[in-house]
Amino acid sequence: MFIKDYIKDIASALKSLATGMKMTGYYFTHHKEIITEQYPDNRDTLVLAERFKGEVVMPHDDNNEHACTGCTSCELACPNGSIKIITKFDVDAETGKRKKAIDTWIYHLDLCTMCGLCVEACPTNAIKMAPTFEHSVFDRNKLVKKLNEDGSKVRAGVE
């Protein structure tokens, strides 16, 4: 009859509200469930996945040598043109032949979408992705970087 399902309707409504309250009450009392990460404070203990694609870098070994031969295959692989390779010809000491070498490896960090296709395309694994993510700078042209250090040369035997 009308009154019966009127009351049943109210009872089920109150029960459903009560279960909702019970659950939020549980979370109110159990602080161990809190998942907030205190970013600036936990900076030193923060561990990032080593495959994290943060920024393209060119590793140099201790005597300032890298593996980039200037073949521009990464520039072709880049979907949005954020890599610009300027090559130069320097004379090889023994053979006297002119060999192509890298002059500047211009990297537009502001254009880069971290897709990793350049690292994939590089035949000599000269570049890799570094897990850095704090890229904010005050001046935009600080984001245009030169990856090969000044005065660095190609490592011998890298073809």
Partner: peptide
Amino acid sequence: MEETCGARLTMNYYVPGGVMWDLH
């Protein structure tokens, strides 16, 4: 996702022919 593909939202992990790297 971050551990295997290297990114959290726009992971570029699939390439024609399979996946870019092996599983972590």
